[in-house]
Each structure stands twice: as C-alpha cells, then as structure tokens.
Design a protein around this nucleic acid. Structure first.
Length: 445
RNA sequence: GCGGUGGUAGCUCAACCGGUGGAGCGCUUCCCUGUCACGGAAGAGGAUGCGGGUUCAAGUCCCGUCCACCGCGCCA
C-alpha cells in the first residue's frame, strides 16, 4: 500500500491507509495500546484495540522505533477530541504494525530542558526534539527568505571559495591549511574580496556559506565555523542604499517567518520581532551620547544591549543601525565619509542586543584603494588579483555580511548561539565521527 | 587569556555548621478497555569529573588539574 503522510491523514477519514515513521510516545493500557506516530509532516494518535492482531507487536514497540502502520483513519468520538493539536480530531486504528528499525532507549529526556553539553553531545538525537526541529526550521526559512528577496532584486548567487591564498588582509584569526606547494593557504574568513570582484560582472551578487575564524573565544555569540549570508551591490549612491537593501531582506524574513514558521515560533515560545518599515539609525557618537558613554571606537557588548533597549522603547524597533565607525576600526576597503572626516560610510545592524550585520560603502577607485591598503600597513602587491577588478573599472558599491546562526538565535530569543547551530565548532568541540578509521575512497586513486 | 559559578544516578536537580547520598523523569517486572506528559504497585541503578592533602570522618574544607556555563578580552 502507498504511504500517506501523517499531515494528510485528515483527508482520508474512513479509508484504509499506510503510514511510516517513528513512535513518538507509547501509552500502554494493558488490553489496548495508544501511540503517537511521527513523520516529517506531523503526528497522529494510533490505537491498538483489544484483540487486535497488532497488539503483541505494539507491546514491544518502544519510543523512536521506526514502524510501518496499516490501519483505518477514524473520526474521534466527541469526548475524545483534543483541541489545539494536529490531528486532534482523528486517530489511526492500527490493523497491522511492522517494526522497520528498533531503537535503544534515549539517553536524555525528550521534553526537558537540557544542558548545552548534553544537547550537543547527543546532537544526532536531539535534533529529533520538537524544539530543535523548530529552531532549524526557522533557520531554513531565514536562508530561503534571504535568497528569495535578493533574487527578486536582481541579485545573482555565486559560490565563494572557502580555501584562500595568503592572509593578506590580516585581522581575524585564520586556520592555516598545509597542502599547497610553496604557498600558504587558509580557510576563508569572509567572501568579501570575491564579492567585490563579482560586482564587476554581475553588479549585484550574494553568497551563502561557511566561513572560519580561528579565535579562542568562549562567548554566547561566537563560533569557529559560521554560516555567512553576504551580498554586495554596485551603482549605489552611498552606504544608505545598502542599508535599505538589508532592511528589505529582514522585513521579508520576518514576513516569511510569520507566514510559514508560526508553529516553530509557538514551539520555542518565541515572538516575532518588531520590524518597522525603516529601522532607526544613529551615528556611533550619537548612540554613545544617548547612553552617556565615552567616545570609543566601538560599542561594548553591554552598550549594544542598552541601545537596543532604547530602540525598542523609543522607536518601536528590535533593529537599529549604528553608522560612522572611525576609519581606524574598519578594514581598508571601507569608504571614508567626505562630510565626516575620520569616520566611515559603514554601519552595524544590531538586533535584540547583538550585532548581526556589518556593512559599508566600499572604496571603488583604484588609486585610493591602493593608498588605503598601504595606510593599514599592508602590501598592495599581495592584492594584485583583487586590485585587477578595480584597475579595469568597478562602480561605486557596497554590501554586508550577516551571521546566520546569530540571526536565528536572536529571532528565537535563544541564549546561546550554539543552540542555533546544528554542529557547532569551538576550541573544545568537534564531532567525533571515527573519521580516522573510515577509509577515504579518494585516497585510492 | 582573565574573572565568576558549577561538575552528585541515563537526564534534570537536591543533600544545613564535615558524620558512609535523595527526588522527579527515564529504565525493569507486574496490574490497567479511551489514554493523549496515561495511571497504579514493586524494583534495579552512584567509588559524588580526575589527582593529591587536612581530618577519627570529605559530595561538603584546602591545593592542583580537566571540562562546562556566564561575563570580559579578542573578534574584516
């Protein structure tokens, strides 16, 4: 018999169907047994009535067993209807129950709050939990919204390389790769330079993919491997055009989540953010004045939290742009504001207390860019590949980089970014997959 | 890297001023014909992260070490 998805059972009342999935719960009543069955589309209650042929199998079928069930979809009697639950008005009367795969007892409580260590040590299993499925459903929708919106705005997606040459840029800690002959190679910390080159051909581009930072930090918001959402756009008037675009991305994201991830938000107890038509904007110095803080080159984490509270209270927004960071604090490709010398046409976007986006207008004029590289104490020679794009005509442009895990974390009000990361890597955590004992087929060649 | 807090049953936690460890959930066995976190009865399960020290006696105090969480630093 053809498989029917659990989510579609309500259209088959009175019919004989076959479902496959997992046992979510078994409630053994002695002469009869109840189940909750689960597949990718949802859950449904199954009943093994007294005298049923399936009863014997039902008794030995535990949580997480993979099963195939043949049965009849029945309307539930009035008194047994459970409101507020998927398929709460129907149930599957089990006629035939087949165990497809047995399952050992789970080493943690399915519904309880778990310590982060437990959650991640048992990741292959904890992703089955309702809360975790909700988190990564939201994450998928965020990525989909990013692509969908930028596609509608004439952007082209491209694959940025993850292995890059000399660490010409300095800055963030890099992972060195020992492989390439007579050359140092590193894992990419950003697709920045490649995005800019791509503007020369496609004007508007974006890239979504992993980036690597070899920094020994232990915070609730840092990871050594992150999923970055980056875009870069040509023919802009200023960094404000870039700000409008990321605003559009996030408005679209909130809208899409409201339409398609309501269940996930309900499952995590999160609320959708206040996402106004245009986000409040403050220069860094203005923000510091509001907070009564000194004019430092950047905001402290505590100040980021405080200014976000201000934006929510005073402007009804969970998002706020902070612009005009000093030249010293920003990378060489950031354009200085001719109307505000010493400060850049750059911005961070803060969301619910943390920085989720960095962006700016970039320097597009060749001679000025060479000069800026020198001013940062770097060698333009090492940037010749990159500079080629500028030497042969690149329009005014700008763009952003956005951390997917942080964005997911903040959309759902999660405390630690690692909870919003499927397989987080940090100094002390990398999956043990027995990789050293698994032969690599490509080695045989 | 620095500071704070913590590490006790499979999970989540409790154990006062030092006196040979408990609960809930889970697990095992039995009972249960409408449950939906089913319910009921009984039971198993622990060298208290690791190493040293103080003490008649250490989960508890001291030193070291490892790990985790939180904050900071760092962070194109």
């Amino acid at each position: 018999m053809e498989r029917t998805l659990i989510g579609e059972l309500s259209a088959h009342v009175g019919e004989e169907v076959c479902i496959t999935g997992w046992v979510d719960v078994r409630r053994d009543q002695g002469k009869m047994v109840f189940f909750d069955f689960r597949d990718r589309s949802g859950k449904v209650q199954g009943v093994c009535l007294p005298g049923s042929e399936a009863l014997e199998t039902a008794k030995e079928t535990g949580k997480e067993y993979v099963v195939r069930v043949e049965g009849v979809v029945n309307k539930r009697p009035e008194k047994n209807i459970v409101a507020d639950r998927q398929n709460g008005d129907i149930e599957l009367e089990v006629k035939k129950l087949t165990i497809v795969s047995k399952a050992a007892t789970l080493p943690f409580d399915t519904d309880a709050e778990l310590n982060l260590d437990t959650l991640l040590d048992y990741r292959p299993l904890t992703i089955r939990r309702e809360r975790e499925r909700a988190i990564f459903t939201v994450q998928r929708e965020i990525v989909a919204a990013f692509r969908e919106y930028l596609d509608s705005q004439g952007f082209t997606e491209f694959q940025a390389p993850k292995l890059v040459g000399d660490d010409a840029e300095g800055g963030a800690g890099v992972f060195k790769v020992e492989y390439f002959k007579d050359r140092n190679a590193y894992l990419a910390t950003s697709p920045q330079l490649y995005k800019q080159m791509m503007v020369g051909a496609f004007e508007r581009v974006y890239a979504a993919g992993p980036q690597f930072r070899a920094e020994k930090h232990a915070t609730t918001r840092h990871l050594n491997e992150i999923s970055m959402l980056d875009f870069e756009m040509g023919f802009i008037k200023s960094h404000e055009d870039v700000m409008r675009m990321i605003e559009g991305v996030l408005q679209h994201t909130t809208k899409r989540l409201a339409e398609r991830a309501q269940d996930a938000f309900a499952a995590t107890g999160a609320t959708l953010p206040l996402t106004p038509e245009s986000f409040p904007v403050l220069k860094l110095r203005e923000a510091q004045k509001i907070l009564g803080a000194a004019e430092e080159p950047d905001l402290e984490p505590e100040q980021e939290r405080a200014i976000c509270e201000w934006a929510k209270r005073e402007k009804g927004s969970d998002f706020i742009f902070i612009t005009h960071y000093p030249v010293s604090k920003r990378p060489f490709y950031t354009m200085e504001d001719e109307n505000d010398p010493g400060f850049t046409k750059s911005f961070d976007l803060l969301f619910r207390g943390v920085e989720i986006v960095s962006g700016s207008q970039r320097v597009h004029e060749y001679d000025m860019l060479v000069e800026k590289i020198r001013a940062k104490g770097l060698d333009p020679e090492k940037f010749s590949f990159y500079l080629m794009a500028f030497k042969y005509g690149l329009p005014p442009h700008g763009g952003i980089g956005m951390g997917l895990e942080r964005l997911t974390q903040k959309y759902l009000g999660i405390d630690n970014v690692k909870e919003a990361t499927l397989f987080p890597r940090d100094m002390n955590r990398i999956d043990v997959l027995l990789s050293s004992s698994i032969p690599d087929e490509s080695d045989d060649a």
